[in-house]
Design a protein around this nucleic acid. Structure first.
Length: 372
RNA sequence: GGGGGUGUGGCGUAGUCCGGUUCAACGCGUCAGAUUGUCGAUCUGAAGAUCGCGGGUUCAAAUCCCGUCGCCCCCG
């Protein structure tokens, strides 16, 4: 299911292959976020053009709209959105805690009001697994509570108890196996806020449940930069080498490099697409805030030698700035195409460097080049 | 030519009747920043008008008075 192809000799970075029901994912991999069954502004064909291998979607959002039944009847999420590659679905735990109104959490599950229309819902961890199975998701995530920073120890501890109760029940609902007959996977999520012992306890308990892979959640939730990586590194320490590791919601290109160095295999983040919609392009020498007046007369490509659809077809910074500043859809589409491709290429370069035991050199080159 | 109306940051307006710590404000635009399991969202900050111009009254004028210029409407 997961095979490590090469372990970098000078860091924890490794490159591998993650087998899913919809194809093999080369790791380390980046998953663009497609909450509403679409990576915003991009078609499935464009994602392929961007060299994307796997996308992330979201059970909470799809459960609310258009609903499980619609997608089930469409033949599953893959058919529904026209994407044949692997899909990881987030449970919606994060959304229940960040978006939903009036949530009430009990051992049984979560009661909440939809952020869209205020309608009341009650979901158990089992419901959420069932929803993701209905969606046809390749990698499922269990319901968890993503604790914000700072959190009182008592709160973090209680929350962790609940997350683990839910994790056990999710694993139960999944059939207590490493994968379904058709090759679908369920990952465990390590929480525990910034408390080292809680993180350790969380990782060890989850490993005992034998998930297909392990995610580190509750990272980059407002904590200081240094603490973030301290917590991440500490959490990873207790996870098995042979299973894929995923940091949820991370991150900037620099964050990804740091996490890969610690042995993380999978990433998702809204950053490339959200920044695109706000007019910011990623390049190997840093971010370009294309909205800025600086680019009004800049007829260069976003990035020289870039093979993304936008750069390949010679769209200039000046033109894209104009489109973004006039709220023309094409503007954010072009930047999205560039950013998603940029992230995919970042991962590709990372994998190649690990293969040659020169990951740290690559990281150094990127840093010296101005990558953030 | 006569009558009426109007002039306040780039644009659109509030304030004018009852001069003075809600008098120089608001929206848009511009400029910049934030954005990490989503946000065509939102938030933060900045620049920018001596209130058409000139004079007068007053301790004090965007506000009252006189003149003048521009624009709009109506009548000839």
């Amino acid at each position: 299911m997961f095979t490590i192809i090469h372990q970098d000799k000078h860091s924890q970075a490794r490159t591998g292959l993650l087998k899913s029901a919809h194809g093999v994912v080369k790791t380390p991999a980046f998953m663009p976020v497609g909450t509403q069954a679409t990576v915003k502004t991009l078609s499935a064909q464009e994602l392929l053009d961007c060299q994307i291998q796997i996308v992330l979607s979201n059970a909470y959002h799809l459960y609310l709209r258009p609903g499980r039944e619609v997608i089930k009847q469409a033949g599953g999420l893959h058919k529904f959105m026209g994407w044949n590659g692997p899909i990881l679905t987030d449970s919606g735990g994060f959304q229940v805690f960040s978006l939903a109104l009036l949530r009430k959490i009990t051992e049984k599950g979560v009661e909440f009001q939809s952020h869209i229309d205020g309608s009341r819902h009650f979901l158990t961890p089992e419901d959420i697994i069932a929803t993701q199975l209905d969606l046809g998701s390749d990698i499922l995530m269990p319901l968890d509570e993503c604790v914000h920073y700072p959190a009182q120890r008592d709160y973090a501890q209680e929350s962790l108890k609940l997350t683990h109760l839910w994790a056990r029940r999710s694993q139960e609902a999944f059939g207590r196996r490493e994968q379904t007959d058709d090759g679908r996977l369920l990952f465990g999520i390590v929480q525990g806020s910034t408390y080292r012992d809680l993180r350790q306890q969380a990782a060890e308990e989850l490993v005992g449940l034998n998930f297909s892979g392990y995610a580190v959640g509750g990272i980059s939730v407002g904590e200081p930069e240094g603490l973030k990586f301290e917590v991440l590194e500490h959490s990873l320490k207790f996870l098995p080498q042979e299973k894929p590791r995923y940091t949820m919601g991370i991150g900037t290109p620099l964050d990804i490099l740091k996490a890969v160095e610690m042995g993380v295999d999978m990433f998702d983040c809204v950053m490339p697409t959200r920044h695109a919609r706000n007019g910011t392009a990623f390049t190997k020498s840093g971010k370009l805030v294309l909205r800025n007046a600086l680019y009004i007369n800049d007829y260069q490509l976003i990035e020289e030698d870039c093979q993304c659809l936008a750069c390949r077809h010679n769209y200039t910074r000046a033109y894209i700035r104009h489109l973004v500043n006039t709220d023309e859809i094409l503007g954010v589409r072009l930047v999205s195409l560039h950013n998603v491709y940029f992230y995919a290429m970042l991962m590709q370069k990372i994998r190649a460097a690990i293969q040659q035991d020169r990951f740290l050199e690559l990281k150094k080159e990127f840093l010296e080049g101005g990558l953030r």
